[in-house]
């Protein structure tokens, strides 16, 4: 019962977030200066040609109507047609997503794989050499912009050592090569995020260490390590989950920039190309898709909370 209520509440807020997000995106793009039709046809275009293109693109319709046709279109998988490429936006996004999404997921996995052992180590060896070195490394990690870190990786592994190519994407026809071309970008994305996650996990664990129930566990005869592992970790997971959810959003956005460094034809390149060409429908749709992904991930994070914390399940 409690779980069902919790789920319904989250679903309602998920839906509202999506509605508001779509309105914000539409408004920002719509009020932006510059008429796409005249931009596409160049400065020498005749007014009647521009008007014809405007009609063709549906730009002469009332804004409200265009908003609704955009939203209802997206729900049926019809993201409209790109002004510049004259191709269905849905298809373009689908092609590019197969680079950006695996990249973000690889980075997220990598970041968690690094952060969990590092955070546990630092918390259990608090104040000792292990903790101090992990903390120093994370202090540096949070200060490094990922795109600069990416350039350093390219400089070292592609230019000096020649282990990998400096950029480009091999395509999924050859999965090994595809993963290879995503490896450096994923590392560049993951390490700064891993530093943040490590710090959050460490401080969450240290917070739980001072909780009364940790003392109770010690009174039962658990060692320090057992207390941390059996009682500390699960309680510390709650703030960690929040950060993990937020990180997905950062990784998606980060992927957009990292793609520039590695010349990866992902959503990031699509967005920047469309911006320079004022291909509004593509910009709108890609941004909406990214926001959609982030909101859904936040929703899943909320569900994960309820799995971790029984208090949330019963609190109506």
């Amino acid at each position: 019962m409690g779980m069902l209520v919790y789920l319904t509440r989250r679903l309602i807020s998920l839906f509202l977030s999506l509605v508001v997000a779509s309105m914000v995106i539409f408004l920002v793009v719509e009020v932006a200066p510059g008429d796409p039709a005249s931009y596409m046809l160049g400065i020498n275009a005749q007014p009647d040609t521009i008007a014809a293109l405007r009609t063709e693109l549906g730009l002469d319709q009332p804004k409200l109507q265009r908003y609704f046709s955009w939203v209802t279109g997206m729900m049926t998988g019809d993201f409209g047609t790109s002004y510049t490429y004259r191709a269905p936006v849905a298809q373009m996004i689908a092609d590019r997503m197969w680079i950006s999404l695996p990249l973000a997921l690889m980075a997220l996995t990598l970041s968690a794989l690094i952060a969990f052992p590092a955070g546990l180590l630092a918390a259990s060896k608090r104040g000792k050499a292990g903790d101090v070195s992990v903390m120093a490394a994370t202090q540096l990690g949070v200060a490094i912009p990922n795109f600069w870190f990416a350039m350093l990786l390219v400089l070292l592994f592609a230019i000096k050592l020649r282990w990998v190519s400096a950029g480009g994407f091999a395509g999924w026809d050859n999965p090994m090569a595809a993963i290879k071309s995503l490896t450096l970008p994923a590392i560049a994305l993951a390490l700064p995020q891993a530093a943040i996650l490590t710090r959050v996990l460490r401080s969450a664990l240290i917070d739980t260490l001072s909780e009364d129930f940790m003392r109770t566990a010690r009174a039962k005869g658990l060692t320090r390590g057992q207390t941390l592992w059996r009682h500390g970790l699960r309680n510390a997971l709650i703030p960690v989950l929040t950060i993990l959810g937020l990180q997905f959003s950062f990784l998606l956005a980060g992927a957009i920039i990292i793609e520039q460094v590695f010349y990866l034809p992902g959503l990031g390149r699509l967005i920047f190309q469309s911006i320079t060409q004022r291909d509004l429908i593509v910009v709108e749709s890609v941004v909406m898709l990214l926001v959609f992904a982030v909101i859904v991930v936040n929703f899943l994070t909320d569900l994960a909370y309820a799995l971790v914390d029984p208090r949330l399940r019963s609190r109506a």
């Binding site: 997000a21 995106i25 793009v29 932006a32 980060g254 967005i271 926001v291």
Partner: peptide
Amino acid sequence: SRGNDLIFAFPSLVIAILITASFG
């Protein structure tokens, strides 16, 4: 609080890109 949650749910950099792209 709802407004906060909403802005937090947006990928900030993506929206920053959208804003700078739209308004120059």
